[in-house]
Amino acid sequence: MPLDTSTYNLALLRVDGRRWNELRRVHAQIRTQAAADGSSYLEMGHTKVMCVVTGPSEPGPRRGTGGGGAGGAGAGGAAEVVVSIVIAGFSSVDRKRHGRGDKRTLELQSTVANALAASLHIHLFPHSQVNISLHVLSQDGSLLAALINAAALACVDAGIPMTDYVAACTAGSTSTYAANDEGADPLLDLNHQEEQELPGLTVATLGESDRVVVLVCESRVQVSRLEGMLAVGVDGCKQVREILDRVVREKGRRMVQEGTVEKGIGLNEMDVD
């Protein structure tokens, strides 16, 4: 079913009723699984992702999968970040079996691995491995952004030192490339329908800075529109960062209240009520 973009100009509302600069509901949890070193669950709209982090640990037997290894692989100077993504068969509207060697999955894996390897302090863990295992339970656009956010949260939970959050978001444009509409507005956080029809990009930034760590654009778009999209995307990343930060702080506060962890010195700066 083609996306009806004609109504946007009338009410400035998108198909799901959002304004151009609105994020979908982002819901996240950390420490969802007892056994793992770090784990998280993230929903961006109807896109649902689970992440489990194991490590830093001794690397297991080498496997020739080549699936998204990044960092000091083999050099021994830094830990290797290995990402594996499992896309559940039931995640999309029509059931589709995703093999493990799927090219698209491999690309996602290496993008996530590179994004995190840049912000994790992997040089502190030579000769070791950080395993990030991501499970996609439901897909509705902005998959890569959700994967990066979930992986960042799980790494925080695992207590792996990192410079700052890596927060990701998508941005798009209100009209298609073919329309060649100069006055097209940028859009924030595309859903599946919009992603299919409209040009879009995924951007991830490091913390509160404007430093971009990931920029993926897989659709045709006029150069003139790109800057606007990027600006909106970076702005969205900041909003996402706020949400991730709130989730982590909330969990930390609760853990202190429950007595799971001692209130440390560093926590004084965190305003625990």
């Binding site: 007892a34 056994a35 793992a36 109807h46 649902k48 559940a88 068969g89 995640s91 499970h135 339970l137």
Partner: peptide, 22 residues
């Protein structure tokens, strides 16, 4: 847990193993 499926469930054992079926 997943509205996009006809039926779904998640079980988490206390030892930390967890499974999802759709």
């Amino acid at each position: 847990i997943l509205p996009g499926t006809n039926g779904s469930a998640r079980i988490c054992f206390a030892d930390g193993t967890e499974a999802i079926v759709g």
